[in-house]
Amino acid sequence: MLSRVMPSNVEIKASVSDRALFAEKAAQLSQSEGTIIRQHDTFFNCSQGRLKLRDFMNESGQLIFYERPDTDGPKLSRYSISPTSDPSSLRAVLSDALGVKGEVRKERRLFLIGQTRVHLDTVEGLGHYMELEVVMRPEQTVEEGQQVAEDLMEKLGVSKESLVTGAYMDLLLKGHKET
């Protein structure tokens, strides 16, 4: 079997106390108002990493497998993605085969700043969060990606204290409520 290098990104997730202020800073840095994306993620049981089906609620979706350590601060995430034009039937098949671990519904506002995707998320049952995804170029080191993320965190006014570990799914399973 041929092994292939999975694409990777450096991610940071943090809670956001002032959604309007964060949106204003992100809009200034990206020179755009951002794009609103509705997402319904279904997580399936799997033996390693995470497997989720992302439904964009418009007859399109993505099956996403990823591996990422659950630690504070910038972390490297490796992933593979397959698009689908029928997320509901794929959800049914995967639910039957693997079982559902849980679901996350969110409204995401996406800003593009350099090589970084900045997400301002409102997550059902959790509240407001931001995610930075530094899309790594092949020649970049993890450290360079982390530096990009940390610089942007500073520009966006994200404090180290607001950093969050794990995925929204983990937070929902742990029973975190809106603060």
Rank of each mutant, 00 (worst) to 15 (best):
E161N: 11
S88Q: 13
L63G: 04
M130I: 11
L152D: 09
H176P: 00
M1E: 02
L2W: 01
P69H: 07
R38Q: 13
L63T: 03
A27T: 06
V123F: 03
L163Y: 05
V142G: 05
E103I: 13
S89E: 07
E144Y: 03
V148D: 06
T42I: 15
D41W: 02
Y79H: 15
A27R: 07
M1V: 02
K177W: 07
Y168D: 04
K160Y: 10
Y66E: 11
G34D: 01
G34T: 02
F43A: 12
D55Y: 05
E154G: 10
S3H: 00
L152F: 09
M1G: 06
D72G: 09
E33F: 02
P7K: 07
E33D: 09
G49C: 09
L120M: 07
V104Q: 09
V123W: 01
Q39Y: 05
L98P: 02
I64K: 03
S85C: 09
V16D: 00
T116H: 03
R108C: 08
L51H: 06
N45M: 11
K52I: 04
Q115M: 09
E107Y: 01
K13W: 00
L29K: 13
M57T: 04
L110V: 12
G166E: 06
E139I: 02
L98E: 08
E59V: 09
